[in-house]
Design a protein around this nucleic acid. Structure first.
Lengths: 342, 342
DNA sequence: CTGAAAGCGCTAACAT
DNA sequence: ATGTTAGCGCTTTCAG
């Protein structure tokens, strides 16, 4: 490390000192195979001595590459976002990319223009889009026609394999149904997410279809429309329990609502799981901290993120086979003590 | 928007179409005052028509500016990180900066080299460092001698005003002490964070000093050494309550531990707050979701982040007066129902 | 396998 | 107030 020199070394310095041309140094940096072994070693030595690292901006300008990936989201769940960031970054590191984050407002009517402008302005090589924004086909379309590489995280195949990484929430919800039936429950309440989200439908249909197979499809009064919020969990639980024949278990389709359900139950003087079982979806930090600990479904968030980043970089690098591999992950059921056998 | 042209417009296109030189266009882009009003309007019109936006890489290369800020952290608390990101980004947007995130491993012995290399490689204009990494003076020193602009988020003035934004956790902890004493508590238990962190000392000393003023300085057996984790909260609570004269309230110095304390209490057959009051620190999502809802202290995280970003950008722009303003924020006490009056 | 030279799109002295 | 001319540090034809 040259502690005394404020100026960082450039490719010219390396070329001069190692007695080769810029072009050759560039080849060494980029691991081109067309460099003699001796030359490579000589150049590499100078690079190490100088503690040289190429200027990303200059490189990007010349090569039309920024080595920057973007992440676009409007998700209230900080834990989810953080997990995705970590997952994406673990792959970025391997390939020399950095991650630029871009939270935004889903409802904004300039959402699409803003997203495209974000990518263009920063010359991002690609973007990863998180749910629920990932479900916006217009956004994906705009990105596609602007020739932007993108991968969406989703619960269903809403794009070609190249552009999406899927967690099969339908089958995860079905697994929860199986589990609750096996515990002996027949009166089963369900709290859904907001209508406009795809995950809402996936989870609901997966759950109901599986129950139907066991001959206990829930009546309409066993299904409450929530909003993925704590408060809506409370409200829906009240509604569900007000039925003349209330459920013995409530499956809230995310943990926030499940925690709301537990709180509501306690308010009503019901003990969970003695008087009412409760299950959630997400395995957020809340799930393991709440009393009683919540039976829930763990989405493979970091895995999805890693796959998305891998796909994206493959796509940027033109490794089409890899970019086009179909990725479908299955969340797993986490059994805790908020659900009991009847 | 020119939908049919794959190539984005460049400054040359704008110059040619508006019949002025590149230099003048550049002046318009950068809001230089030395441009005639008519010229400015004419150029701006072309810019709008072409939907032109300058290439950040080229701009950065020429001006030695990337318009990229970095965020360095190793913090288990996703909510905190997310809050900081949002805060920083709200300022970034105003000034045309983007944010590159960089979680890392505090324990790594290449931490410092990696951080410096991160900044150099990506040509970041500045970085914001989160606790507890922000407490690493060697890192700050290395950044400083590498001429990197940085701002640290901290609980104490561990750098010059330009380089730090402070939340006064000492006085916040003191406020909690006052509050508990006012509720009538005298036997007061404390669960600290890990020794190596500054915030641990700040919170502990602030708390104890305030109690001392009221003549109820806690004995050594009323202070348990935790680790800011859920499990350590449980363990420390057990220890505290095993005293012959156990506390009537436990102040855990973060919410995770406070939630552990509540769980431990319930395990021991104690009802919170009837048999034991519990208070936390952070006002994390857990605080409002747990039963009973947690009395805690809310750190002004987004505010700190905004101040840090503002400072950093001022410093980059050479607005020294602004960069050197001293920022000390005070967290506020949030009263909920996990603490009761004796 | 290596080198010379022409840019990538922008800013910044230095004119005018 | 505006234009000319060099670069910023790198990649990339195109030659050898």
């Amino acid at each position: 490390m040259n502690e005394f020199n404020d100026q960082r070394a450039t490719i010219n310095d390396v070329a001069r000192l190692s007695g080769v041309s810029k072009r050759t140094v560039s080849r060494v940096i980029n691991n081109s195979p067309k460099v003699g072994k001796a030359t490579r070693l000589k150049v590499q030595k100078i690079i190490d001595d100088l503690n040289y690292s190429p200027n990303a901006q200059a490189r990007g300008l010349a090569a039309r590459r920024s080595y920057l990936l973007g992440m676009i989201y409007d998700n209230p769940d900080a834990l989810y976002i953080n997990d995705v960031q970590r997952g994406v970054l673990s792959i970025c590191r391997k390939f020399g990319y950095e991650l630029v984050v871009h939270p935004c407002d889903m409802q904004s009517d300039t959402l699409i223009d803003e997203a495209v402008s974000f990518v263009n302005r920063s010359k991002l090589d690609g973007v990863i889009i998180l749910p629920p924004i990932s479900e916006n086909n217009d956004l994906a379309g705009a990105l596609g026609s602007a020739n932007v590489n993108y991968v969406r995280l989703a619960s269903i195949a809403l794009d070609t394999a190249r552009h999406v990484v899927i967690s099969n929430e339908r089958s995860a919800a079905a697994a929860m149904a199986e589990y609750l039936v096996k515990l002996g429950h027949r009166r089963i309440g369900y709290i859904s997410g907001p209508r406009r989200m795809r995950s809402t439908r996936e989870r609901l249909e997966g759950f109901c279809d599986a129950l139907e197979k066991h001959g206990c499809k829930p009546d309409d009064d066993m299904i409450a429309l929530g909003a993925y919020t704590f408060e809506s969990g409370i409200e829906c639980t009240r509604k569900l329990m007000a039925n003349t024949n209330p459920p013995t278990v409530i499956f809230a389709s995310n943990d926030e609502m499940a925690v709301g359900a537990i709180n509501a139950a306690q308010d009503m003087g019901l003990k969970v799981p003695r008087d009412l079982s409760v299950a959630g979806f997400d395995d957020s930090i809340l799930a393991s901290r709440i009393m009683p600990p919540l039976t829930t479904i763990r989405r493979p968030v970091q895995d999805m993120a890693r796959h998305a980043a891998t796909k994206l970089i493959a796509s940027i690098d033109g490794r089409n086979d890899e970019a086009d591999v179909s990725i479908i992950l299955v969340p797993e059921l986490v059994e805790r003590t908020s659900t009991r056998s009847l």
